[in-house]
């Protein structure tokens, strides 16, 4: 799901608030496992809906998309494009690591698999694989907490993760985790060759009514596409919405 990390950030922030508001004042040195545990634990949110805009910029032109998303837990989510007209009615369904899309122009549901997973969603810097890949990083990576550094004028933990096997999409991740909110403000994603292929930044972190922090803006840059970036801004977020079972089914995908 496109906003998986966004929710990760939000739930991590919630966990931070609930567990220890003292992070900012007296930062203790956490273990990598505890940081990754926080990620995984806090992904298990209840339900939510959001409205977002996605700006996809390239040296040639800039396009803007608006969409609504629904999510339940870490493994179920949907996206529906509202605009532009060309994309309106295009829907995505993610269940675990599987993903389908409904294409209104051909009235067809297609499973996204194989090489298609590596393509950017709507030509953006976010690949389908980014959206479906598991965030169970403890299983996939060996981690080292390198230390603390300042990012965007705030203290961050610097965590370096190295993939345990070569079939992981990103062989290495460098993550700067906000000491206070535990939001991964900045990520650098590396290929097996050592080439940095993407950066993934989360910003505009605001406290929500229920006390959790939430990054309302994400910026993803595919370093292999010169001059391109994708910015996703959450314009409306509702947590704890009631969602029918059918929302996360192929039937919903087809009928809307």
């Amino acid at each position: 799901m496109l906003t998986r990390r966004l929710f990760l950030a939000a739930t991590v922030a919630l966990a931070t608030l609930v567990s220890s508001p003292a992070w900012a004042d007296e930062p203790e040195l956490p273990t990598v496992d505890s940081l990754l545990n926080a990620f995984e634990t806090n992904l298990n949110f209840e339900t939510r809906s959001a409205t977002m805009t996605m700006t996809v910029a390239s040296p040639r032109r800039t396009r803007e998309y608006s969409m609504t998303t629904f999510g339940r837990g870490a493994d179920e989510s949907t996206i529906e494009y509202l605009s532009p007209a060309r994309e309106r009615g295009t829907r995505y369904l993610r269940k675990g690591e599987e993903m389908w899309m409904y294409l209104p122009s051909v009235e067809r549901v297609q499973k996204i698999s194989g090489h298609m997973l590596r393509q950017g969603m709507a030509g953006s810097d976010v690949s389908y694989e980014d959206m479906t890949s598991t965030t169970e990083w403890q299983d996939a990576y060996d981690g080292v907490l390198v230390g603390q550094e300042v990012w965007d004028e705030r203290p961050h933990w610097r965590v370096e993760l190295t993939a345990k096997t070569s079939d992981i999409t990103y062989a290495k991740r460098v993550i700067l985790v906000d000491v206070e909110t535990l939001i991964p403000s900045h990520q650098e994603l590396y290929a097996l060759s050592g080439l940095m292929v993407k950066t993934w930044d989360m910003s505009d972190v605001r406290p929500l009514e229920d006390g959790r922090h939430y990054p309302f803006r994400m910026r993803i840059e595919d370093k292999l596409k010169e001059g391109s970036y994708t910015e996703i801004v959450t314009t409306e977020l509702v947590l704890g919405v009631e969602l029918e079972e059918e929302v996360f089914s192929l039937r919903w995908l087809e009928r809307g």
Binding site: M101, S105, V106, E107, R108, Q110, Q119, G120
Partner: peptide, 14 residues
């Protein structure tokens, strides 16, 4: 048929 737009987005044609 599934092709791509000039921006690289999946583009279906029926």
């Amino acid at each position: 048929l599934f092709g791509q737009t000039q921006d690289g987005a999946i583009s279906p044609v029926g």
